[in-house]
Amino acid sequence: METEFNCHFCDVCDGYGCVGQMPGMGGPNASRNFILNCAAWKSVGKGPFEPEEIEVRLAPMTGAVENVGYFDEKQFYFDLVASCVESGIKITIGDGTPDFKLFWGIEAVEFYQKKNPSLKAGVFIKPYPDEKIFERYERAMGIMEFGGIDIDSYNIITMRNLVHLEKKSASDLIALKKFLSSKGIPFAVKGVFNSEDIEVMEEVKPDIVCISNHGGRVDVRQGSTAEFLKENYRRLKNCCGRLWVDGGIRTMEDVRTASTFGADGVMMGRPFATALCQKKSFSEVLK
């Protein structure tokens, strides 16, 4: 089947090739934060820790048809999980609207669990009203490595209005953390990208904090995730078990740079989506 993908497969994925493409692979304001994310890993310098090869994980991705240009939404999740399994990349799934975007991601992981019963995935849910979050956690419980909230998606105004997303307080997040802790599952918060977020994390103390601006698609403030990590890793390391970062990471040198600022892991989205479209092994992405 011939498919016209929205990715242009640029030699260097740095945000310039898809400017103005939303839906698509670009970001708002002429991909401003997407471009900054990519550039900053080359200019941010090195932190105080010795560089390490830390965990690299698939970032949660949905909207395969409208954003990636994939030929089938359900098949995207199955192909994405299959490529992660084949390449030994840890899996994270997310949700979206309609609900099948989450359910097909869960089904894909469940399918490969039949061959590998130990297979698990991180699951990020958008900040819906609590009842809906709990329902989604329960549906994903059989595959869940950790459960998380994607707080930065609240700042995507069209999505917020469409599915009634909420700005979660520290007490809201603590309640979700307690629910997952009662099931023996770690709690993660993705989308930390301003000083208010850090203050909330200091109160919540999640198991995992992920610095993120949704791949540059959230533009409430100008800046890169690399610079935010550099400026705030000390405070964040003191209030979580593990510190992750995503946005603009393209090479193993970028991964090692993140590690020098205390990151325990990184998540990547666009490079894996591009590899899938080009039928490349995910293990080749960082070479």
Rank of each mutant, 00 (worst) to 15 (best):
K90G: 09
E227G: 07
L119R: 00
G94W: 01
N194M: 02
E199S: 09
A170M: 04
E52P: 06
T260C: 03
R235K: 05
N232R: 02
F111N: 14
E2R: 11
I143W: 01
G20M: 04
I54T: 05
I133C: 12
K42E: 15
F49A: 12
Q21G: 06
S182M: 04
T3M: 13
I93P: 03
C84F: 02
P28A: 09
G47P: 01
E4L: 12
F5M: 07
A59M: 04
A82Q: 15
T97C: 08
T257C: 06
G105C: 07
T92Q: 12
D150S: 06
I198Q: 13
A170Q: 07
A175V: 05
E253M: 05
M1V: 12
S171L: 13
K101E: 15
G148F: 03
F5Q: 13
L180D: 13
R57W: 01
G215I: 03
L162A: 15
G24L: 10
F187G: 10
I125W: 06
K168E: 15
A39K: 02
P48C: 05
T251G: 05
C18F: 00
N194C: 13
L102S: 13
I91L: 04
E196C: 09
G45Q: 12
T3N: 14
A121S: 08
E131P: 07
T225Y: 00
V255D: 13
S195A: 06
P129Q: 07
V19F: 01
V220W: 08
K74H: 09
T260S: 07
F111K: 05
K177R: 00
A170T: 01
V19C: 10
K205N: 13
L119Q: 07
S195K: 13
N161V: 01
P23A: 10
E253A: 10
D254W: 00
G45T: 06
K120V: 02
G191W: 01
K167W: 05
G88V: 04
N29V: 09
